[in-house]
């Protein structure tokens, strides 16, 4: 009768935890009840336990005698590398260099910004300056009325002289 008592899959999964004392009270009671009734379960548990004991055969190597010394030397070496950046002069120099870098970058950005703005964006004042010669002579240009006439005047010296005479005569 007792040998018919079989372990369920869950019970089987719980056996290692039972051996390790990691099961809760209910599960522990259940396993103990099965173990009390089943020699198969007791055998399973025993084999599981003996297998785990075999792990004591695994090597437990000792560290080399100079391991601590070597490790401390490596740590000190690393500390030296780190300590340069921890020194005050290094940190101050670093801060000054960063400040200079930012200042230079700011100046370059300002100059570039001014140059770009100056070339791309046209201000109303720029148009006035550009058109100043035209505005100064605007009254004369309006009197002339015709660009063709001006071209003829430039091309013909004779006509220019006649115009000059007519003007001086009018002035008299």
């Amino acid at each position: 009768m007792e040998k018919l008592q079989r372990l369920s899959s869950e019970d089987r999964d719980n056996l290692p935890a039972y051996l390790d004392g990691e099961l809760n009270e209910d599960a522990t009671r259940r396993i103990e009840s099965i173990l009390a009734q089943s020699s198969v379960a007791r055998n399973d548990l025993e084999r599981l336990s003996k297998t785990y004991d075999l792990l004591d055969e695994l090597p437990h190597p000792d560290a080399p005698k100079d391991f601590v010394e070597k490790t401390l030397a490596t740590v000190r070496l690393e500390e030296v590398k780190v300590s340069i950046s921890d020194q005050l002069w290094f940190q101050n120099t670093q801060k000054v260099l960063v400040l200079i870098g930012w200042t230079v970058a700011l100046i370059i950005a300002s100059v570039a910004g001014f140059a770009i703005t100056n070339h791309i964006i046209e201000r109303p004042e720029d148009v006035l300056v550009e058109e100043l010669p035209l505005m100064k002579n605007l009254d004369r240009y309006e009197e002339v009325q015709s660009v063709e006439f001006l071209n003829q005047l430039t091309a013909s010296e004779e006509l220019l002289k006649q115009m000059g005479k007519a003007t001086s005569h009018e002035q008299k």
Partner: peptide, 12 residues
């Protein structure tokens, strides 16, 4: 718990 259970079954 599951990891160790499977591991010990494999070892067994």
């Amino acid at each position: 718990k599951s990891l160790l259970s499977r591991a010990r079954e494999n070892l067994r």
